[in-house]
Design a protein around this nucleic acid. Structure first.
Lengths: 233, 233
DNA sequence: CGGCATAGTGTCCGGAACACACCCGGGTCA
DNA sequence: TGACCCGGGTGTGTTCCGGACACTATGCCG
């Protein structure tokens, strides 16, 4: 990609990057995707996937591009999280980063690495290695946001396979909200919303009574949303 | 402020600005602070106060500095809103802006302009002139955020004078949420939280029975918050 | 065929939301 | 000066919703 070797401005400008907090759900645990850095600064440390924003792309596009390049991930749900710009957060100089958070179905991304000759891996969000830059703060902010948002918007489904059992769904909420929920009340509430399509299928290969499978009805949700319906818990 | 006349980088960098959506509450109406632009682009148009981020200041500091410089405002409540970076949003080239939103007591800022030889004025949020850049989008996003946030965090008080009546408080919520509330229930709920200090004073100069004044108890709120209390509606 | 592991289900109670109507206090104006 | 007008401020009954709570059903496995 040839071009001029330098760019000159009248006033100094910070560098601009995007970083992505990608969440996935494994049985029993909420995971976050990390990349092992190959270059300084923080070579060898784990960090959130991300990189520099190009001049002709939007911030959202930059986040998607970096995710695809660094981990081969094309998330369904991606939203801007917060912008971190404290001077000194990057030893190379002033770097401002727009953080994003994404939700993916882990099942779609089991064999993770091998996409860019980099190490990429899923870690439990409660037990990550020491992170580069201020990425702990970014992760913390993302967790808070996820916790706050999952109760008022049906985004949790992005973490589950298309067909899931009510128990799986309940566990998802329990893991994210960090508290236990009553099975009967949970089912009553979620079914009362009439957003789940009950399928004529049950889970396979379990050594006990198989649970019925459900599917989230995006179309019905869009309708209800327009009509002023508010998803809650 | 003399210095080198140019800054050179190996890769192109977007310019970085901050813009602030400052809300104030007038009897009966939610207002937003706008500044008339003196220079191109969009000279003569109204716009949100804002400007370029300096290399040695944090984003929050930049927002506060610009607000002070352009309108003489030092808001109590200021928080980051969203970062807008679509290529083409500024005709001068790639400019990414970190938007903030702030709440102020209008009473503290009645005589607005005259601070920087610029025009500054409060407009009803439902009836603003045509704005420069993509500032309509920014304003829209800020309104949405305010609407969402006011129900779960006691930030509405930042818009009222220190001493206020319950009716004033109720009107605030009605204006922001764009729906009417039941007087009896509103009072019951807000008083039950035990966050308002009942004063031995009543409002003055009204042509009907004077209402009792209250004050928001920040200290008590901090305590309750730590104890896991959640403000709601 | 018995045991075990998870699926699936209904009821009751207390507090919150809501709708409804009346008295209070003070200023205004005839 | 007294009648009235305007919002301020309060009580109650009804309904609705969320939370607590425990047992039966089903299917696989040994």
């Amino acid at each position: 990609m040839p071009g001029p070797v330098s760019y000159t401005y009248e006033y100094p400008r910070p560098a601009l990057t995007v970083d992505c907090v990608v969440f996935g759900l494994d049985d029993e645990d909420l995971k976050v995707l990390l990349i092992r850095r190959g270059v300084e600064p923080f070579a060898g440390r784990w960090a959130l996937p991300g990189g520099f924003v190009r001049m002709e792309e939007s911030l959202d596009d930059a986040a998607r591009r970096e995710l695809d390049e660094e981990a081969g991930i094309r998330p369904n749900h991606l939203e801007q999280l917060y912008t971190f710009g404290t001077p000194g957060r990057d030893p190379r100089g002033r770097v401002v980063t727009v953080a994003y958070f994404a939700l993916v179905k882990l099942s779609d991304h089991v064999p993770h690495a091998a996409t860019d000759a980099r190490d990429a891996a899923w870690f439990s969000v409660w037990d990550t290695p020491k992170l580069a830059f201020d990425h702990v703060d970014v992760l913390g902010t993302a967790l808070q946001r996820l916790k706050g948002k999952v109760r008022y918007q049906p985004i949790g489904f992005e973490l589950l396979p298309p067909k899931f059992t009510l128990t799986q769904l309940q566990r998802l909420y329990e893991v994210i909200l960090e508290r236990e929920l009553d099975k009967r009340n949970f089912r009553k509430k979620i079914l009362a919303m009439d957003l789940l399509e009950e399928l004529d299928e049950v889970e396979q290969d379990v050594s006990h009574r198989a649970a019925r499978l459900y599917r989230f009805d995006h179309k019905k949700y869009k309708q209800l949303e327009k009509a002023g319906f508010n998803f809650e818990l």
